[in-house]
Structure formats: structure tokens, C-alpha cells
Nucleic acid binder design. Structure first.
Lengths: 129, 129, 129, 129
DNA sequence: GTGGTCTAGACCACG
DNA sequence: GTGGTCTAGACCACC
């Protein structure tokens, strides 16, 4: 069984879940440069979803330089954790900005916001998704 | 002219924009309990969108107890800013948790996370969306 | 202030609420034969609803012989509690049948149904609506 | 042919009929968790009603956790009969309370009420609606 | 093929 | 005038 999973109840698109999932595996060190990804077909079979969806995810990962696909050999990991970490941090900041903005407009105080941010960090478990 | 607007370029659904918009007006004090909302038809005419879309937004607001609608009369505001603010705060916390979780899994340190949260608050403007 | 009230949140039609309300006042003895009902206009003003709605309720009550309207004198109660009680009992039985039917179709046992009916009687307060 | 039907003569709204209908099929065991529901379009064609109406019913069922819908896939049953039965029982109790309350206010005795409840159960047929 | 959203326009009951 | 429901038909994203 693979470490890759999808959640049908999530409103996020399946291919996007896959992309984030694989990036997460690299970030957490479970996948390293040169590691081989499961084939499109086998992963599709395993997850019970359409091969096109896997393909779309792999294409997106290839387009952004995270993986590389070689004819007849499959797909291998290119990027290492450090590279992805920077991108991830940027996205985090922009999402935090959006939240901060909404909080301000709702009349939530800076104290409450900071308190919530600290609690959020404290409460979430370690590695598990 | 009403305070309610929609942005056709926004990928967010129209009816959801309306819901958030009206909640925002309550949060900012521009709408208070017992205030009357524009009628479904008049608002539709004014915004140039279909009455059904307004209807959907109003129904959602009624379902969640934000407004009350009376046949042949119209809709009035029920919830006050404080009630909505609490709900808003809960949503904020849960989103922060999700972000904190992803940050942890990406190997981002607590220091970086807190720094990002503080910067986010500092950088966002005041009231404007 | 009158004993008659309406609930805008109730999905039941206003005129129907009025009809039931007045019948209830007779059943509970707060209105007796020959008692005078408030005038259409004054009641409309007091409750903040359309006189047409009061009119509709009074017409319905007159049609079913509960009240009588005399030109220039207003409306007075005709029926006494005993007469109404029998009608009320019939309606009660038919509603109970509907509930029993739904309960059966949902696989609820007779024991649970009877238990629920007994509890319902025990739990409801005395006179208040 | 599907087990789902609608009755145009019924004053109950079509989408509500559909909701109750599907819940009923789950309660009676004709639909179980993981069973697939007919697609919005096919059911609309079959029943001769508008897809939007089916959509509305399915959305309501999803909102209340009875079914789950996946983009491009269709809808499957989530809740099992026991869960629905509990909800149904709660609704039954609250309706019985209302009836008991009205009965008390009408001066109906406990004996008459219980007798009526027992008769109601005895008289209604088995499964058919 | 699937569901999700939106528009256009109709009808009803109610005030 | 008001809201509530339904139909018809279109478009989009996704599988």
C-alpha cells in the first residue's frame, strides 16, 4: 500500500490533493530525489480513481519541476525538501494574510488573532495528516 | 444604491459572495438586527443578476439564522455582530489549525510560523477587502 | 393587550394561526359565548398585520359557526368549549394516525411509540402554549 | 424502474417528497450505505421533473449527511437505517409533545389522549403509505 | 457521462 | 408588492 491517499469528501479537486500529497511526502522526507513514484496506472488502480486524474497530477508536478517523467522508466522525484519548503512558506504567508484580513474586517482583535494562532500551533499533532 | 455588491470576476460563487457580503455588513455594523434587507427582486434588478441567485443566498442566511423571512413581507436581520463574530472566530481557529498542521509537516519552525502570522497581521490594510 | 398573538417565524399562515388561537381561547375558557372579539381594525393595528388577514380569519370562524358577525356591533363568540372540544379531538386522532403511520414505516416499535406518547403528555406544561 | 416516485397532487413540495422518499428507502432497507443513487439527470428524466428539483433534494440530503456526492461520479448513501431512525424518533417525540400540549389546552383528558394514540397505532396499515 | 451554478421566465400564495 | 417553487435550458469543471 502506498502512502498516497485521497479524500472523496474533500471539495478540493482530486488531482490537487495528489499534488499536495506528493509534495508533502517530499517535505516530510518520505520521498527523496531519485525515488521512483508509482506508475500512473497502478496508482489509479490502487486508489480507485481515473488514470487521467493521476496523469494530470503528475503533469502538474513535472511542470513545476518537482518530478521528472522518463519514457519507459516512469517518474522520479527531482526536487528536494529545501526547495519545496520555501515555496510552501510563501503560500503559508499569503494564506495567513487573507485570514488576518478577514479577522480585521470582522472586528477580531490582534490579541485574539495571535492567541488563536499560537493555540493552533500547540494543538495540532505532530506528523499525521 | 445598496451596499451589497458582487464581483463577476471572482471565482467564488455569486450566492456565496452575497452571503459573505451581508454577514460582513452585519459585522461592520452597517446592518443591525431588525433592519430590512432589499427584496429579492429589487436586489436582483440592482445587481443585474437572477432573482433565483438572490433567493439562494437569502435561503442560506435564513437556514443559518442570520436573517428571517416572512411571506409577502420581506427579510429582516436577526443575528447581531457579536453572534456572527463568534462564529467567524471559530472558523478562523480551524483554518489556522489547518495551516499550522501543514506548516509542521513541511518542517517549518514555530519561529517562522509565528513571524509569518505577525507579519500577515501587520501588512493587511484596515477595512477594505 | 389582547391574548391573541401571532408568530411570524411559524410557517403556518397568519390567518390560520389566528383561527387556532381564538378557538384555543374558547377551549381554555378565556372566551365564552356572547363575549365580544376585538374589531378587525384594532386587532390588525395591535398585531401589526394586514386587516385583510384578520378578516380572513374571522370569516373562516364565522363560516364554521364559531363566531357571528353583526353589522355595526362587531363579532361575538357563538360556540362553547364542548362543541369545539369534539372537533379538536377528531383532528387530534387523525394527526396521531399520521404519526403512527410514519413511525411504523420507519421501523419504530409499538413500545417506543407508546412510551414517546406517554412521555410527551408528562413533559408538556399545563396551560401555556 | 426506480423505487423513487413523486405525487404531483400532493401539496408537499416535490423536492421534499424526494428527500422523504429516499430517507424512507433507507429506513426500509431498500437502500443501504454505499448504494449508488440514480444520477440527477436520469432521475429527472424518469420522473418527468426538472433536474434542478432533483438537485435541490440531493443537496439537502448531502447537507444533512444522508448521502455523499462526488463531482463527476454521482451520489452514494452514507447514513444507515439506525441513524435515520433515531432522528425520526426525535421528530416523532417533538410532534407528539405538540399534540399533547394542544390536547391539554383543549381540556382533553389523559385517558382520551392515550386511547386515541393506541387506536391510531392499531388502525394504520403496515408498510404502505 | 457526472454534479454545480446561473439565467430566464413562469406560477402560486400572501399582504 | 412580497417570497417560494418549479421548469427549461445553458455553461462549467470533472471523470
Amino acid at each position: 500500500m502506498s502512502l498516497i491517499t485521497v479524500d472523496f469528501r474533500d471539495r478540493k479537486q482530486l488531482f490537487e490533493q495528489l499534488v499536495d500529497n506528493i509534495k508533502g511526502l517530499i517535505l516530510s522526507g518520505e520521498l527523496s530525489p531519485d525515488d521512483k513514484l508509482p506508475s500512473v496506472r497502478s496508482l489509479a488502480r490502487e486508489l480507485g480513481i481515473n488514470p487521467n486524474t493521476i496523469q494530470k497530477a503528475y503533469s502538474e508536478l513535472e511542470r513545476t519541476g518537482v518530478i521528472m517523467t522518463i519514457q519507459g522508466r516512469g517518474s522520479i522525484v527531482l526536487a528536494d525538501a529545501n526547495i519545496l519548503r520555501d515555496e510552501q512558506e510563501e503560500r503559508l504567508v499569503s494564506r495567513l494574510k487573507q485570514i488576518a484580513n478577514e479577522a480585521k474586517n470582522s472586528g477580531i482583535t490582534k490579541e485574539k488573532y495571535i492567541k488563536a494562532a499560537l493555540e493552533a500551533w500547540a494543538k495540532v499533532g505532530g506528523k499525521d495528516e
